[in-house]
Design a protein around this nucleic acid. Sequence first.
RNA 1: CGGGGAUGGUG
Length: 280
Amino acid sequence: TFASNLLVQKYGEFGSLQDARNVFTAMPLKNLFSFAIMLSAFAKNGHLEEAKRVFDEMPQRDLVCWSSLIAAYARQGRLDQAKAILVGMPEWDLVVSTTMLTAYAHGGYLRDAKVVIQAMQERDLVSCTAILYAHVRDGNLNEAKRVFDGMKEWDLVSCSVMVTGYAHRGHLEQTKNVFDEMKVRNIVAWNALLLAYVESGQLKEAKTVFDAMPQHDLLTWHTMLTAYAQGGYIAEAELLYESTMQEWDVISCTTMISAYAQLGHLERARAVFDSMLEWD
RNA sequence: CGGGGAUGGUG
């Protein structure tokens, strides 16, 4: 049972749900974990009906199973259904609250988010980060910073939430302050710093950050591209496109197309579009 | 051995 559970989990992580299900149904003895892992596999891959069916078939359910199901609905923005499940639960814990909080904050239901925050008894790093995130979504950076400063510990995710919150609003000084205080920095933090410069119109400084970054990803290019397009720097945009286009996705190409279109280069916009048709 | 937190275009 132990080994089969692991196998189901691995298939689930890989997205091979059919294989996961086959192993699961063939298991002669299933324990709580077996059901929970199968449930989680469907839930994480967005198969809500299947997840619900496993849930309904379970002989016993603990908090983790309820939470897993709620997270599945919440992630897809099915907040009503997530909430319906929530109120049917025998008891709540910090993880369920955090799941709902994030879902509300992400969907812009800030009033509901605040109700959850006030109902939370205990807090840990993850739930504090979710609270922080809720304030950022609310556009209330002062409150976000208050929460951030009041935290007992910080990690990459909490710092990233704070730094991207500032960057999105073009608060360059605050972005730099948080960024500078980070002990380790990942691509999310670097992208935020880059964005802050772009948002405050400092293209030259932005390029310096771009060159100083340890890595670039789709978002990095997207941010630079947007900056170039806004400033009318078509040659620079084109250079960026040509050097990195092999790794671009639909969003980057769409941005490139509208950049060309905006600046009146319709044939080149068309060329980018045509290159996309050869993808599959 | 299972559940919760972060960055881009259009909608």
